[in-house]
């Protein structure tokens, strides 16, 4: 059985490798209205202030943080229209520092009323480290795989804090159970997944992709949300993310970290 599945895999890989222009996603191109580009501009913020490394910020507990590393994976981007969903192939994007700009080419033209993406790496990819594609490559992602257990750090957030005491914080969030999806739509719809939480929020305007055109989606990540609601993170006591602590952090950000600022 095992051998047969390898054969099928080899054959299907072989077929795909000859047809690079094919739409790897589901649907989307049936009417063949052409293709356009969609650029995701993912920008980190502290409330309304653009985030920068090496700058002092005050979080909900009143503690001051100064960040040396902020890296995370945005993945599995889907563009959702009324009748189809375009799943962007191999969409694993590492945001490192203040912002990330990534252009998705050859998106089937259409009116997308929703967009969905994950924070983290899906279990299929996360259970292996030998990836040579784009940002999952351990050389490119640099320090995002654990060296004692197989898996990616979904978020690597490190720096110094000043509260009642001073010290360093090291937040590394990973593991399948902490994978989360963020869904934005302008028709009030919501989505669910059997294995993880999907938060549905508002998309200010539809993403209209025209043949040969380009659209830009500005995604805002407000990192103050990481430190509050429901749990206010007091860095004097809470400055690592071992075990269950990671879940506390995920519950803080899972429905509030991202918003779509605007589409242009």
């Amino acid at each position: 059985m095992k051998k047969i599945s390898y054969l099928l895999l080899a054959l299907s890989l072989g077929m795909f490798s000859c047809d690079n222009d094919d739409d790897m996603g589901t649907g989307g191109s049936t009417d063949n209205k052409g293709y356009g580009d969609v650029t995701l501009h993912i920008q980190n913020f502290i409330d309304d202030e653009a985030f920068a490394l090496g700058t002092d910020y005050i979080v909900a507990s009143g503690d001051t943080i100064n960040v040396t590393t902020l890296k995370y994976f945005v993945s599995n981007v889907e563009l959702i229209s009324e009748d189809t969903t375009y799943m962007v192939p191999e969409s694993y994007y590492l945001v490192d520092g203040a912002e990330k700009m990534v252009t998705i080419e050859d998106v089937p033209a259409g009116t997308y009323t929703g967009i969905k993406f994950a924070l983290g790496v899906d279990s299929t990819a996360n259970h292996n480290s030998d990836h040579d594609k784009a940002d999952l490559d351990p050389v490119i992602s640099d320090g995002m795989i654990w060296n004692w257990a197989t898996g990616y750090k979904f978020i690597k957030f490190e720096g110094a804090f000043k509260g009642d005491t001073t010290g360093n914080f090291v937040f590394h969030v990973g593991k399948d159970e902490n994978y989360r999806e963020f869904h934005f739509s302008n028709d009030g719809s919501s989505m669910e997944h059997m294995n993880h939480k999907v938060s549905s929020m508002e998309l200010p305007t539809s993403i209209m992709v025209m043949d040969g055109g380009s659209k830009k989606v500005h995604i805002k990540a407000n990192w103050l949300e990481f430190f509050e609601n429901p749990t206010t993170i007091d860095l004097d006591d809470f400055n690592t993310s071992h075990g269950a602590k990671a879940t506390t952090l995920v519950e803080n950000y899972e429905s509030s970290l991202f918003s779509i600022h605007h589409v242009e």
């Binding site: 259970h127 292996n128 480290s129 030998d130 351990p138 795989i145 060296n147 004692w148 257990a149 197989t150």
Partner: peptide
Amino acid sequence: FWDGGANTLESQAFGPITH
């Protein structure tokens, strides 16, 4: 690894090299 932390040999190799 002694605790089975690495899923495959292909993933395991990165551990000792980078630790």
